[in-house]
Design a protein around this nucleic acid. Sequence first.
DNA 1: CGTTTTTGACCAGCGC
DNA 2: GCGCTGGTCAAAAACG
Length: 301
Amino acid sequence: MDDKERSDPGTCFTTDSSWTLGDRDAADESVNFLFGGSDRESSILSQFGWNLHPETSSFADHDRSDLAGNISYGLTESSTGALQQAAPTTTNLAGSADVSTPNPSVSSSSSEDPTEKSTGSGGKPPEIPSKLVRKKGQKRIRQPRFAFMTKSEVDHLEDGYRWRKYGQKAVKNSPFPRSYYRCTNSKCTVKKRVERSSEDSTVVITTYEGQHCHHTVGFPRGGVLNHEAAFSGHLSPAISPYYYPGIHMPQESPSPASMTQSHHVTQEPREPPILPDPTPLRMPTDDGLLGDIVPPGMRSR
DNA sequence: CGTTTTTGACCAGCGC
DNA sequence: GCGCTGGTCAAAAACG
């Protein structure tokens, strides 16, 4: 539908040690690929709020010269459905415009387009159905997207935000359906899609679109987390309360035990999110780095 | 009873 | 123009 995303993340697949991107015309509208794996790229991802564990993440050193667009791919490994997110950083992509939203979505205020969000408005405006609004006239404008792949047995990875599922669709060339989620915050227009890789069913592809305009809400359904406090305390506000050493600690290889201890998302935090410096990865501080890979549209102005 | 999920229908964009 | 596909809506069901 819309802008025909040939950039569908589902076309990205992986093998044990390498990633290959499917035929993808990244030149179109807003799809970019950002490979992780190298310190440099990990840093980039970190700026998006995600940690990339160097040992559990594998990326092809694919033709990076082709990188362009708005989707970045990362691979993390999680058996519990919790996403590893980097600590909030004042140098996140959103910069001053997004000081309060260290979030998994692309922190891009430049391409943030409130007007587009007629569809995304969580509370459906009774008078004018959003889809009718965009029906004729303007083309739907896609917000920058950030996708990554996670080895996980659960589809919907916990990321600290609350999501409401609003659709599910079978996708072509994939035995797995794609689920569509919207941030439950009525003012937040962030959406995300979750699907399993058709190539590797253990890999969950999560695509975020948009930018949160709020802090994390803690953990849904009984979850705690005074994220404000956590945030101010420089704990990862959007990180799962579960800490996965195998994922988070570069010096520690993911033990089979740690990778299989849990196969479902438990909403109840069992222990306080005592996190080490959630940014074991070097945090980039220069715009030059971003400017190198991340297009201006993905960054704050 | 409020919130979330499910699911069929609808719509838009694209290729042929 | 038609069919295909992806994305969204919205009513009903399920859940807590």
